[in-house]
Amino acid sequence: MLTPVDDGPAVVACNTCRLSADLREDDQSQRGGARLLAALRAVQQGDARYAGIAVQEMACLFACKDHCTVHLRAPGKVGYVLGRFDADEAAATAILDYAAAYAQSEHGRVPFKEWPQGVKGHFISRTPPAGFVAA
């Protein structure tokens, strides 16, 4: 049930997420999670700043109320679940911009003034790294 992946900084995208709060799929029967995943990969490949951020996928992050969700994680850092994104290049760029700042941070905390506008209002939860709790 578990698939090993690289243990570095990663954006794990739910590939089965709804397209929006109202729609499961687009007019070509593609789910929002699959579209967001494709956008993340396209943006990542087009910009060397994101080379150190893995884009990984899994089915269902159990955040179904909040469509187009991703989990941001890295060893020894607080993780974050974000959602309610449009499945497009602008959202993918904002997510990867935040992920780059996150990867450079000491414990996963990025100062609010450094957050891309496109991630503000999209945080669902934060998760402590194994063996720690966050203050």
Rank of each mutant, 00 (worst) to 15 (best):
residue 2 L to G: 14
residue 2 L to I: 10
residue 3 T to A: 11
residue 4 P to H: 07
residue 5 V to I: 11
residue 6 D to K: 12
residue 6 D to P: 11
residue 6 D to L: 13
residue 8 G to Y: 08
residue 10 A to R: 06
residue 10 A to D: 05
residue 10 A to I: 07
residue 11 V to L: 07
residue 13 A to N: 08
residue 13 A to F: 00
residue 16 T to V: 13
residue 16 T to K: 13
residue 16 T to D: 08
residue 17 C to M: 04
residue 17 C to E: 02
residue 17 C to H: 01
residue 17 C to W: 09
residue 18 R to V: 01
residue 19 L to V: 05
residue 20 S to W: 12
residue 24 R to N: 08
residue 26 D to T: 01
residue 27 D to F: 11
residue 28 Q to S: 14
residue 33 G to W: 04
residue 33 G to K: 03
residue 34 A to Q: 15
residue 37 L to F: 01
residue 37 L to Y: 07
residue 38 A to C: 01
residue 39 A to F: 02
residue 39 A to C: 09
residue 40 L to Q: 03
residue 41 R to E: 15
residue 41 R to T: 07
residue 42 A to M: 09
residue 43 V to P: 05
residue 44 Q to G: 12
residue 44 Q to S: 15
residue 46 G to R: 02
residue 48 A to S: 12
residue 48 A to W: 03
residue 49 R to W: 01
residue 49 R to M: 01
residue 52 G to C: 06
residue 52 G to P: 06
residue 53 I to E: 10
residue 58 M to C: 13
residue 59 A to F: 07
residue 60 C to K: 04
residue 60 C to G: 03
residue 60 C to E: 06
residue 61 L to K: 01
residue 62 F to Q: 12
residue 63 A to V: 05
residue 64 C to W: 07
residue 69 T to H: 10
residue 69 T to P: 00
residue 70 V to K: 01
residue 74 A to P: 08
residue 77 K to M: 05
residue 78 V to H: 07
residue 79 G to L: 08
residue 81 V to Y: 12
residue 82 L to W: 13
residue 83 G to W: 07
residue 84 R to F: 00
residue 84 R to Q: 12
residue 85 F to C: 05
residue 88 D to Y: 09
residue 89 E to S: 14
residue 90 A to E: 15
residue 91 A to R: 02
residue 93 T to N: 08
residue 93 T to Y: 06
residue 94 A to W: 05
residue 94 A to L: 05
residue 95 I to R: 02
residue 96 L to P: 10
residue 96 L to K: 03
residue 96 L to F: 09
residue 97 D to K: 02
residue 97 D to A: 06
residue 98 Y to S: 01
residue 98 Y to R: 03
residue 100 A to V: 04
residue 102 Y to T: 01
residue 103 A to M: 02
residue 106 E to L: 14
residue 106 E to R: 15
residue 107 H to M: 11
residue 107 H to C: 08
residue 111 P to I: 02
residue 112 F to Y: 14
residue 114 E to G: 00
residue 115 W to D: 00
residue 116 P to D: 04
residue 117 Q to M: 09
residue 117 Q to A: 15
residue 121 G to S: 02
residue 122 H to K: 03
residue 126 R to W: 14
residue 129 P to S: 01
residue 130 A to D: 09
residue 132 F to E: 11
residue 133 V to S: 13
residue 135 A to Q: 12
